[in-house]
Design a binder for these strands. Structure first.
Lengths: 139, 139
DNA sequence: CCTGAAAGTGAAAATGAGTTTCAATAAGTT
DNA sequence: AACTTATTGAAACTCATTTTCACTTTCAGG
């Protein structure tokens, strides 16, 4: 809970208002864990603050992304968000679509590297394959 | 042109019909190069086969992806496709959205590796940053 | 070469994620 | 408490993608 408070207070310090809707979204995001889609965040947040609108979830996630508190990425036609945690990647199951977090980084290109004029500021890696369950079921 | 023929004949051998629409899409895809969006493929293919419908482009790209001839990935709300070429990755510019192909692979996890029950069959890597042009303009 | 069953097609309508608009509401300053 | 202005929710909208369905084409078998 302390992290959420810090996040919200930092937002306030930067001139944004701290509202019930934003509090609910931040809390939902923290509970949702890795790579939650908008609907999941919406459902969780609405539990704590029933008159929350979906639009506000989009707006808040966008705000948090622009302020650097969450990462945004796309998978299967819908965006996913997660609180900006220590550098990690994702294991995406081709059969069931489940996303697992994986804490190692097997990418040898570091921030600031220049590749023929292109300056690298970061990277996104997804390892695709089959999760333990689907591995047995499929094929 | 020979590659396209091979692709189409292989499809036929697997029981799919080779149609004018599919020929046009495959040719467009070959011309489009790296990471073409659906609209680009559609525009190119329609030149060769004017009564082509957009729906058929979606369907054909989907077929080719399922048959393993093209890679599909998502970026900025619209899917991109490209003929499955030798393993490579993409440099995505945060400012202008341009996508460049990059032929090296800095990922040390190989196919077949098992990570706590998850079997890796492949990976997708995007290096994000600023292209030569935007690097000078932005900031 | 014909022919017919089944696959494939295009147009239009439907879906669904995400965005915009706008009048009403609430945060935080005075 | 009053006031200014950011924020909100609902509804309408946009745009990529999918579905439906009546019509067309492919190609295996004659």
């Amino acid at each position: 809970m302390s992290f959420n408070k810090f996040l919200l207070e930092t937002l306030r310090a930067r001139g944004w208002r701290v509202t019930a809707a934003r509090r609910a979204v931040v809390e939902a995001l923290a509970r949702a864990g890795c790579a939650a889609d908008v609907q999941t965040v919406y459902r969780l947040a609405k539990r704590a603050y029933p008159r929350l609108g979906l639009v506000t979830v989009y707006r808040t996630l966008d705000l948090l992304a622009r302020e650097g508190w969450v990462q945004r990425w796309e998978e299967g036609g819908a965006a996913r968000y997660e609180l900006d945690q220590p550098h990690h990647h994702h294991l995406v199951c081709l059969a069931c679509g489940a996303v697992q977090r994986w804490d190692r980084c097997p990418v040898s290109v570091r921030e600031g590297a220049t590749l023929g004029g292109f300056v690298v500021t970061g990277h996104r890696l997804e390892l695709v394959g089959y999760c333990r369950t689907c591995r047995e079921v499929v094929r």
